[in-house]
């Protein structure tokens, strides 16, 4: 099983509220601050993107449901900072510290922002694992979703797409496996594919017989069908 964040296909959420194209990027000042803080703290290099996603997913389900988007980012960041020993619980609580940080020389300065954002963090890596599927091949996703390396760990096969039959649309190359990377077990790079699954294989009442959902799935999530 996965976690509370895995909500694709869920019923009960109500209508969506579109936004005007010229609405502010950040609706509250603290939203922008929260995003910037997360990016700058990430620049300390103490965790990767899979670890940071998992930190948000590990929030207790009641918190995940209750907190707004950027509140979840802040809660995830607080967890990351403590779990990575960047801050102590006491420092978080008192907001004071008499200990300088050994990571201070890694702090992102204003002039490093543009190069940091431009460099990004590509996820493709060489891999000794050969691609066994090609475009058009029929595949079946794992029936039971969940991390095979770490119970309750990070994974990217959504529950709604588990045990479904589809076909390979394209091979994206070999990419870091989040199930491994989120737990500091190495990149574990393997072939990554776009897999098309007919809506009729996913939902009790699909809207249209020709509709489909396409997911990016790693080779180890798939079996031949």
């Amino acid at each position: 099983m996965t976690r509370v964040h895995d909500m694709g296909g869920r019923f009960g959420d109500g209508a969506i509220t579109p936004e005007a194209e010229d609405d502010p990027v950040f609706h509250e000042e603290w939203h922008g601050r929260a995003l910037a803080l997360t990016l700058a703290a990430g620049g300390l290099g103490q965790w990767n993107i899979d670890i940071s996603r998992h930190a948000r997913e590990c929030l207790p389900p009641m918190d995940y449901a209750r907190l707004s988007y950027y509140e979840k980012w802040m809660a995830g960041l607080a967890g990351l900072l403590v779990d990575a020993d960047v801050l102590t619980r006491r420092e978080l609580e008192t907001l004071t510290s008499d200990m300088p940080s050994p990571l201070a020389d890694k702090a992102v300065s204003a002039d490093r922002v543009a190069p940091m954002l431009a460099a990004g963090g590509p996820a493709d890596r060489p891999s000794a694992i050969a691609a066994v599927f090609k475009a058009g091949d029929a595949v079946k996703t794992r029936k039971i979703t969940g991390n095979r390396l770490m119970d309750g760990g990070h994974t990217r096969l959504p529950a709604y797409a588990a045990g479904a039959t589809g076909r390979i649309v394209m091979l994206h190359g070999t990419h870091v496996l989040p199930d491994s990377s989120a737990h500091q077990l190495g990149d574990g790079a393997e072939p990554l594919y776009a897999v098309a699954i007919p809506a009729a294989h996913l939902w009790a009442s699909p809207e249209h017989p020709d509709d489909e959902v396409i997911l990016d799935l790693w080779q180890s999530y798939l079996d031949p069908a």
């Binding site: 950040f26 603290w30 922008g32 601050r33 929260a34 995003l35 910037a36 803080l37 990016l39 700058a40 703290a41 300390l44 950027y70 802040m74 960041l77 607080a78 900072l81 960047v86 801050l87 420092e91 978080l92 907001l95 004071t96 510290s97 200990m99 300088p100 940080s101 990571l103 201070a104 890694k106 702090a107 992102v108 300065s109 204003a110 490093r112 922002v113 543009a114 954002l117």
Partner: peptide, 23 residues
């Protein structure tokens, strides 16, 4: 958010000017 920014700045781990730049 302010609390996190405050402690991280005090520890020398965040440069508030970098946050302005990102925003």
């Amino acid at each position: 958010v302010k609390a996190l920014e405050t402690i991280l700045t005090r520890k020398g781990l965040i440069d508030p000017a970098a946050l302005d730049e990102i925003i």
